[in-house]
């Protein structure tokens, strides 16, 4: 239900606030999310770990196509988890904008609507029994 709930909240949010300006203050929240969820692999400063976990700093993929980066966070990719169950939609937007605009990175900000739409695309039915193994 969690995902449905998130979608619901996301839709409500976008209805009520229409498109409020995307958070300008993503740096502080983003830094905290980065520490909690990204740093273990991508290392402080986003410098990456040897040739195992790529540097985010200066990374062309990170600064490239917005949609690709959004889907990467939502679906995962070989070597990378999905964060759809761990981060709220707003946090996903924040962390994407943070990594695209930190350590010298510069890229267009993603909006909450773009993230919400993508979440709706990839959300899998949650049967309520929780993750496995």
């Amino acid at each position: 239900m969690k995902n449905y709930f998130k979608i619901f909240i996301a839709l409500m949010g976008s209805l009520i606030f229409l498109s409020t300006a995307s958070a300008q203050d993503f740096s502080e929240d983003g830094a905290q999310i980065f520490t909690d969820y990204c740093e273990a692999c991508h290392q402080p400063g986003g410098v990456g770990f040897e040739d195992v976990y790529p540097a985010l700093k200066g990374n062309t993929f990170v600064q490239g196509d917005k949609e690709e980066v959004i889907y990467l966070l939502l679906e995962g990719r070989a070597g990378m988890p999905t964060f759809i169950g761990d981060l709220e939609p707003e946090q996903i937007t924040t962390i994407i904008n943070y990594i695209r605009n930190s350590w010298g990175n510069k890229a267009e900000e993603v909006t909450q609507d773009e993230v919400d739409n993508a979440i709706e695309m990839v959300s899998e039915e949650d049967d309520g029994f929780g993750p496995g193994n």
């Binding site: 040739d51 679906e75 995962g76 990719r77 070989a78 070597g79 990378m80 988890p81 999905t82």
Partner: peptide, 26 residues
Amino acid sequence: LGVLAKINTNLSEDFKQALLTTRSNP
């Protein structure tokens, strides 16, 4: 596949892309 992705291969581009669509679960 996260480990395989670091290895130099001459897999076809389609195949390489297919492998990237998996996710890793911490």
